[in-house]
Simulated scan of single mutants.
Amino acid sequence: MSSQQDKVYIEIIRELNHIIQEDQLIAGDKLPSERELSERLNVGRSSVREALRSLELLDLIETRRGEGTFIKSIGGHRLVEVLASFFLREKKARSDLAETRKIVEVEGLRLACERIDDSQLEILEKLIVQSKNSWQNGKFPVEEDYLFHKTIVEACHNRLLLNIWISLVEYSKVALRESLSREGRPEQSIMEHEKILTALKNRDVDQGILALKNHLENSRF
């Protein structure tokens, strides 16, 4: 994610926290609409929507169809404040983000080696094929890459771990595209995915973790 995009994202979360405090909102209260937030924060609605989506993935807020977005009862504005302060660390946050993603994903793969089912292995195989097709057609397989890793964490069948992973990777999706844009990286990344898949098929935890750590290191997140 570019420095400018970082600033917009951070500013939105910081201002959301300010609005929650200013309006004295508590758990169960409704947040202002996307349109109102966009006007109050002077940013595009798409940027507001992405920030809200990240907070929802962390289970800090929830969207109810036809009703709006509400603060969840498990944390309220205090968790939003913690989240904002984390992202406000600028460069330090980037290294923390990469380190935390590695910890979460390695543990997810460790559990997935025991819990992954045949349908999820098939999904991983299809995603590798789709990645190859996308790259052959001149497109960076960003979405396929994202879904490959997401499927692995889903396979550990731990919803909280998955929510944490999604929130971390949503924040760094632009970094994923930048990583894949390096010369020779798409082909190498796909081969690394194949090694991870082989380890999962064999339920080989050690080889799986080794392959994943190597992949994340080469990806330079």
Rank of each mutant, 00 (worst) to 15 (best):
P32F: 07
I116C: 05
S3Y: 02
G208Y: 03
L41Y: 07
G184S: 03
H18N: 08
R185I: 13
D118G: 00
V205D: 05
D204A: 03
D145I: 07
E194C: 07
E114I: 12
F140T: 06
L111D: 13
E99M: 11
R78T: 14
L180N: 06
Q4W: 06
S119E: 15
V8W: 14
A93N: 09
L97A: 02
A51W: 05
T69C: 08
L57N: 14
R177C: 00
V153L: 04
C113Y: 05
V43G: 06
Q130N: 08
E143I: 08
R78I: 12
W135K: 10
I116W: 02
R220N: 11
E62V: 12
E170T: 03
D6Y: 15
F86M: 12
C156M: 14
N202H: 14
I164Y: 11
E154N: 06
A27H: 01
A84P: 06
A155M: 08
L176G: 05
L161K: 03
I61M: 00
I103G: 01
R110Y: 13
K92N: 14
K92I: 10
I166A: 10
D204W: 07
H149S: 13
E81H: 09
I26C: 07
L161Y: 09
L55E: 11
L176D: 05
H215D: 00
Y171P: 00
Q5V: 11
L109C: 06
N137C: 13
A199W: 08
K91E: 09
L121A: 00
R45S: 13
R203S: 15
S33L: 04
L216D: 00
S219K: 12
V169A: 07
G44T: 06
I12A: 09
E36A: 02
S172Y: 02
I166V: 10
W135T: 09
Q24Y: 12
Q120T: 02
D117H: 13
D96S: 05
E183C: 00
L57M: 09
I190R: 00
S219C: 08
E22F: 05
L31D: 05
N163W: 01
A51R: 00
R45T: 15
L37P: 06
E125K: 14
E39M: 10
K126N: 05
R49F: 00
S33D: 10
L124Y: 01
L16H: 05
L127P: 01
K150Q: 13
S85T: 15
A84N: 09
L216A: 01
E178K: 10
K173S: 04
V153P: 07
E143W: 10
V169R: 04
E122N: 03
N42G: 08
R53W: 00
S189W: 07
S47D: 15
I209C: 13
S33N: 01
I152M: 09
A27G: 15
I128E: 01
L16E: 01
D29R: 08
R78C: 03
I116M: 11
L88A: 10
Q120K: 13
S85H: 07
D59V: 03
V153Y: 02
S179F: 13
I152N: 01
H157W: 07
L58D: 02
W135S: 06
T100N: 08
